[in-house]
Measured scan of single mutants.
Amino acid sequence: SFNTVDEWLEAIKMGQYKESFANAGFTSFDVVSQMMMEDILRVGVTLAGHQKKILNSIQVMRAQMN
């Protein structure tokens, strides 16, 4: 498990989005775990492969939080 959203993004090789997530207010796992595709688009993730990777990881995160 990760301590910060930045660490999580690095771990899934999506570190290039750290600033975008932070600027959009997605700075805690409570918020990130609620993200939908529209949120991912809003933070500027436009590549389908990256969207899928982030969404898949969020689903895993949700499962671990319950």
Score class of each variant (00 low, 15 high):
54 I>V: 04
25 G>H: 05
41 L>W: 09
8 W>P: 00
20 S>I: 08
16 Q>T: 06
8 W>H: 01
62 R>E: 05
18 K>E: 03
24 A>P: 01
42 R>G: 08
12 I>Y: 03
10 E>T: 09
3 N>F: 10
27 T>F: 06
44 G>Q: 03
63 A>E: 15
20 S>A: 15
26 F>W: 09
63 A>M: 11
35 M>K: 02
24 A>E: 09
42 R>A: 13
20 S>Y: 07
2 F>Y: 13
43 V>Q: 01
4 T>H: 06
48 A>I: 13
39 D>F: 03
60 V>A: 14
60 V>C: 14
52 K>N: 12
53 K>E: 12
6 D>G: 13
66 N>R: 09
45 V>H: 00
34 Q>V: 09
5 V>C: 03
53 K>F: 15
32 V>T: 03
30 D>V: 11
66 N>L: 06
48 A>L: 13
21 F>W: 04
19 E>C: 09
18 K>S: 11
13 K>T: 11
28 S>V: 04
30 D>R: 15
64 Q>E: 12
37 M>G: 05
56 N>H: 14
52 K>T: 11
62 R>A: 10
39 D>Y: 03
8 W>C: 02
48 A>T: 10
24 A>I: 04
26 F>S: 02
10 E>Q: 07
62 R>F: 09
40 I>F: 06
61 M>N: 04
49 G>I: 14
13 K>V: 07
13 K>P: 01
3 N>C: 11
62 R>L: 12
16 Q>I: 11
55 L>H: 06
1 S>V: 14
34 Q>E: 10
63 A>H: 14
46 T>Y: 10
33 S>F: 14
14 M>H: 02
24 A>K: 08
60 V>E: 15
20 S>L: 12
8 W>M: 02
55 L>M: 14
33 S>D: 04
49 G>D: 15
38 E>Y: 09
16 Q>G: 06
41 L>E: 12
30 D>N: 11
25 G>E: 04
11 A>R: 09
56 N>W: 14
46 T>P: 04
45 V>S: 01
18 K>Q: 06
5 V>E: 00
55 L>K: 04
4 T>C: 09
43 V>P: 01
65 M>G: 08
31 V>Q: 11
18 K>Y: 05
61 M>A: 04
13 K>Y: 13
10 E>G: 06
28 S>W: 04
4 T>I: 05
1 S>C: 14
59 Q>D: 10
49 G>L: 13
38 E>D: 12
11 A>E: 11
3 N>H: 11
23 N>T: 12
43 V>G: 05
59 Q>H: 10
39 D>S: 04
17 Y>D: 01
10 E>F: 07
53 K>Y: 15
65 M>I: 11
63 A>I: 10
64 Q>P: 05
6 D>Q: 07
12 I>R: 02
39 D>K: 03
12 I>Q: 05
